[in-house]
Design a protein around this nucleic acid. Sequence first.
DNA 1: CCAAAAGTGTTAGACCTACACCCATGA
DNA 2: TCATGGGTGTAGGTCTAACACTTTTGG
Lengths: 248, 248
Amino acid sequence: MILKNISVDCVIFGFNNDKLNVLLWQAVPELLRKFLNTDDDYEQIRVLFDENPALKSDNFWGLIGSHLCAENDLDCFAKKILSTATGLDNIYLKQVKTFGSPDRVPHYRVLTVAYYALINPDYHDLQHSSLAKSLKWFEIDNLPEVIFDVKEIINKALKKLREEVQYYPVGFHLLPEKFTLSQLQTLYEVILNKKLDTRNFRKKIMKMGLLIDTGEKQENVAHRAARLYSFDMNIYNHLIEEGLTFRI
Amino acid sequence: MILKNISVDCVIFGFNNDKLNVLLWQAVPELLRKFLNTDDDYEQIRVLFDENPALKSDNFWGLIGSHLCAENDLDCFAKKILSTATGLDNIYLKQVKTFGSPDRVPHYRVLTVAYYALINPDYHDLQHSSLAKSLKWFEIDNLPEVIFDVKEIINKALKKLREEVQYYPVGFHLLPEKFTLSQLQTLYEVILNKKLDTRNFRKKIMKMGLLIDTGEKQENVAHRAARLYSFDMNIYNHLIEEGLTFRI
DNA sequence: CCAAAAGTGTTAGACCTACACCCATGA
DNA sequence: TCATGGGTGTAGGTCTAACACTTTTGG
């Protein structure tokens, strides 16, 4: 059984072409079926779609999400949505907020529990996703027409990301396994929407002690090749435990 | 109509006798009625209580809250709970998180949207509350037996309070209108659960420019009388707008 | 005059910001 | 050899942490 009054939506951020992107889709019941457990669930979803014509528009995009199945844990259901959408497990995922204005969705009352997730779209090819055909990346400051209060939800998630990224080294989730310091700096600049001083940025990052020099370098670049670093998950987990020690 | 799958609970913090306290109650349907809109709502609540014997125990305490009425905005409903419980409007109130394990409440599935609030119990006499007889303050590290996952919710709210208090001058909401710097320091020490250096604390606080010297002093104290300060709401609102400028 | 809390400054070290040039690479 | 981005150090100012004594008040 699905809970008609509760949906779970994921704001999936990606870092692509030096831009911060959000993954959206145009939901149809057949695809939502992949999040659900039973044929009954699917039947309920179809009824909801019939009740709410806004969901059927071709011109509006929405967050990837679904009504919650009664037997699923909230966090696990968000993970399930995410792994179904991206084909990836173990993605950084965090609850943002629950949205609950009475008129945010027409025709029936629904609260949306919003999560945000960070992935690297270059590294993780979404063609493997079973939803691939309905998914699309959009630049954060060039969003399409969206349904309901999706823009508000994205803005809130972005605000939360901006806060988190300053105190927790969260941004690493958006990069490939091996990356250059310039990529990392650009990522921070894009998320925070401001220029950072290269020398100071490097000092701060190196002081954290989170980076492992892989010994490798970029290849085939028309300039001095940059070192490639990877990211020490053990030290990261320690830092997360201890909390706010770090500030960009 | 009430939404059977959604409840809204408030973790109400108070600062009393130099301790951080939480306001709990033992809910009964007749009192919950005050949060609700219609007799039908009340009837539904009574059914839920009958279905769930845990709610009727005399030995367990719970957070002040209720199932959400379908026609009410989520934030407004939390405010309504709070003002009914305390008799006070314009209280600092913030969403913490939504709790959604499937087994957190026996017999039926319910997600709880938790809020936290800060009030000053010396200053605001809860005897005026229409729930007064069922309410009780408990010290944060001396909680009674609580129902369901209330302890987890309180801990999460406390963690959030600890984070917020370091970057936003939120703690002021817990003090009377006029207070001494020692009271403020004790409040921070209690919330953060660590000693602070008096001279450094005073420097930081004064640098914020949030305090107005009322010109008054304590009276009838067996030691040098301390100055009484009040708290400049205008500057506070500016600081909140601009965000993270301040760190204890 | 005693007990109890209020109130106050300085110093050393850490950290932050601002800033400009040489290096390595492929085309 | 040129264009491009990679990579580095320092100085001045600000912020932080650690620390001890005098003042005021009521009993």
